[in-house]
Each structure stands twice: as C-alpha cells, then as structure tokens.
Amino acid sequence: MATPAVEYRDVSYAYPARGDSGSPRPVLEHVTLTVNEGERLGVLGPNGGGKSTLLKLTLGLLRGASGEIRVFGLSPDRAVREGLVGYVPQRPDCELAFPISARQVVEMGPALALPAWKRLSADHRAAVERGLHVVGASSFADRPIGHLSGGQFQRVMIARALAASPRLLLLDEPTVGIDVSGQQQFADLLKRLHDELKLTVIVVSHDIRTVAAGCDRIACLSRTLHSHVAPEGLTPAVLAEVFRHDVAGIFGEVHVDAHAAAACKDPSHHHHPGGGH
C-alpha cells in the first residue's frame, strides 16, 4: 500500500501554561486521521478549535505533541526540509512595501532551497509560470506586490507555495476576506490543483463554504476530531456538535438564538484569546 500523504496517530497537543497562573491548555486531543496522496481534505472547525495548531504541527513549527505525525512517511521537519510541503498562512503578514513584483515573490518559493551560487533553472522558471497560471495570476505577474487586491495577493501566495513544487499544500483559512465570487474561484482553484498537479491539499477553515466546494472529504475538528464524512453526509447535527454555539462564526448572517448561546455554561466552549493560532 502506498505511503499516505499525512498520518496523524493519536495526536494531542496542549499549549504550555503561561506564567504562574493557569494550567496547560489542551487544543488537540487524540486526533487520528489519514490523508491519502492526491486527496483534498477540508478541516472544518470553530475558531480556537485547533485547526491552525494542527497545521503548525504538520509543518514542524510546534513541538511537544504526543502521538505521531508522519508526512510522506517522514517527520514534519524532514518533510519541510525536503521541500515536500507548501504552506499559505491565514492573513499573510508580508511587508507590502517591498519593491518586488508578484512574479519575484513567486520565484522566492523555488529559490529558497537553492544554494546562493545557483541561479533559477529553466525548470524552476517553468514551475513559477505554471504556479502563476494555475492560480490565474499571470495577467498581473509583473505588478508590484503592494499594488494587488487582497484576492490577487492571496493567489500569489498560493502560487509561491506551488512554484516550489511541493507534494502537499497546507492552506489556512484561504478565503478570509474574500467575497462570494472569490469563494467560487477558490473552489475551482482547488479542483485545478487536484486535476492538473495531483497535489494533496489540506484546507482548514471555520467557513463551511470554503471546505464544502472543492474538497473530497471533510473532517470536523474542535479539539477532538468529530467525524470525517463526505460533504453530502455532513448533517446539521454533526455541525451543531462541532460548532456548538459558535455557529455564529460560520453563518454570520444566520440568526442565532441568544438564549441558547447564553445557556451554554461549559467554559471550554468559550473562545480563548489567541486560541487556534
């Protein structure tokens, strides 16, 4: 049997206690999940539910989790060093005053792994153009990075990750701040990544629209993994279980019964400051 793209085996993680007060804050408990190569997995969950933490563990940015994480059979650090993983964070925090074009930003992807004395090869340049093309950024590739709209910038970030030719792409809240037509374009993009590049993609989001269209499978994460079922099998009951009263977070326009929310006294259901990041 082929090595799965990502394997989480009984993964638990708690952020260490800060200062003298408080105890370690568990964000993930007993997560077991296998992502097959070529699969597009949507991880849906409320803010503070541990989605970003899961991605950071997958990148080797956080250590100290119990259980085991394997990325293409390797440790997360090793997989990142081998260039197998691409990552696009939530709300990229870039210096937009940098005097570089969108294409130069995308070139950073493959260039990072190159020794200083080596120039980008023709293959690298082709990967850069392919990345720009797949995300639909070719038309503004020569524009200064600071002159792009939010949606265009997001696509350039994805193109940069793609240009390094990873086998696994991790996207953290990719549609935050993008309008409905942008959401549809994003779903189309996920499909192209799948069809043209055969990429394994993990998308985490609190927004069901982001993961419902374009993913093969959805896992619901709120500290524990609630279920992972085909989109059509995702019932309101499962969603209610995952999000509890946090449904306001996903369906901002839907009226949420304030009494029901206030009735929930379980402190673990309240959003922790800085949680999930």
Binding site: L59, L61, D77, V80, R81, Y87, V88, P89, P92, D93, C94, E95, F98, I100, V105, M108, A111, L112, L114, A116, M157
Partner: peptide
C-alpha cells in the same frame, strides 16, 4: 548579503512562512 540573499529576503518579506519553510 549575496550568500544569504534568498533566506534573508524571504524572511524579511514574509517571516511567518519563512519560519514554516525552515528559515
């Protein structure tokens, strides 16, 4: 600057992803 231009520029431009990519 020439030797470290790639990680240095990546990090200067986008520290979060640079960290994630092992810089």
């Amino acid at each position: 600057l020439w030797l470290f231009r790639r990680p240095l520029l990546f990090w200067a431009f986008d520290p979060a992803v640079a960290r994630a990519m092992g810089v």
